[in-house]
């Protein structure tokens, strides 16, 4: 579904990604783990068209999207839940959800909003409140619900567990599994490696702008090097 080949990208003259190769198969959860500053967010920004890669290609379902503007990429069915949740704080919860469906022209938007309320009941209670006053966990659920409102084929998530209580993190990862069950393809960037690897079909390690390891989620969990470098803090 997503194929990234020999991707180079960065900000102005600062190169962050050096020849990244990575692919995400349809229906899978693929995770990319790596330390702070490895280039994980930069990679997602390149996929979403926020930054323009300096070389290489990004293909989605066979279509080359490397130099398309962000709104065209969303139209192709790729939604991103950005780092830090990026909800629209000065809009209500309901307005945020409507914004999620911005690229859609159909009349089922109201029904999809109801569906989101069933999935995340906390959002329904607060639908007319400004999104800025929600708790961190609620904001993350809103961010995911809003991304789903575009009915994406591929969902990109940038550290959805960041700064959230363990119980809520577990809930979010459970939601991602459910979404996979409903046929979504998920590309998950995480520092919370253990939980990400537990739900991942495929996993990649990004180090200083290069993919240094790849394998199945399960094999990563058993890999001594991964355990030492990425699971150390959580190892029993």
């Amino acid at each position: 579904m997503l194929a990234i080949r020999d991707l180079h990208a960065g900000y102005g003259k600062i190169a962050v990604l050096h020849s990244v190769n990575l692919s995400v198969e349809e229906g899978q959860i693929v995770t990319l783990i790596g330390a702070n500053g490895a280039g994980k967010t930069t990679l997602l920004k390149a996929v979403s068209g926020i930054i323009r890669p300096s070389a290489g290609s990004i293909e989605v379902g066979g279509a080359n999207i490397t130099h398309r503007p962000p709104h065209k990429i969303v139209e192709l069915g790729i939604s991103q839940v950005a780092e830090g949740r990026a909800i629209l704080k000065r809009m209500t919860v309901l307005e945020n959800l409507r914004m999620g469906a911005f690229v859609r022209g159909d009349l089922d938007i109201g029904r999809d909003i109801e569906e989101m309320f069933q999935r995340f009941p906390a959002l329904q209670e607060r639908q007319h409140r400004l999104a800025g006053i929600l708790s961190g966990g609620e904001q993350q659920m809103l961010a995911i619900a809003r991304a789903l409102m575009a009915r994406p084929r591929l969902l990109l998530l940038d550290e959805p567990s960041l700064g959230l209580a363990p119980m809520i993190v577990t809930q979010i990862f459970r939601t991602l599994r459910e979404l996979q069950g409903e046929g979504k393809t998920i590309f998950l960037v995480e520092q919370n490696a253990r939980q990400a690897l537990q739900i991942a079909d495929q996993a990649y390690v990004l180090e200083r702008g290069r993919v240094t390891l790849q394998g199945s989620g399960q094999s990563f969990l058993n890999d001594p090097e991964i355990q030492r470098n990425y699971l150390g803090k959580h190892a029993a």
Binding site: S48, G49, I50, P69, P70, H71, V74, E75, S79, Q80, A82, A86, I87, L88, M99, G100, F102, V103, R146, A150
Partner: peptide
């Protein structure tokens, strides 16, 4: 950036 990621031109 948030607007663009939601599909706004």
């Amino acid at each position: 950036e948030t607007a663009a990621l939601l599909g706004v031109n």
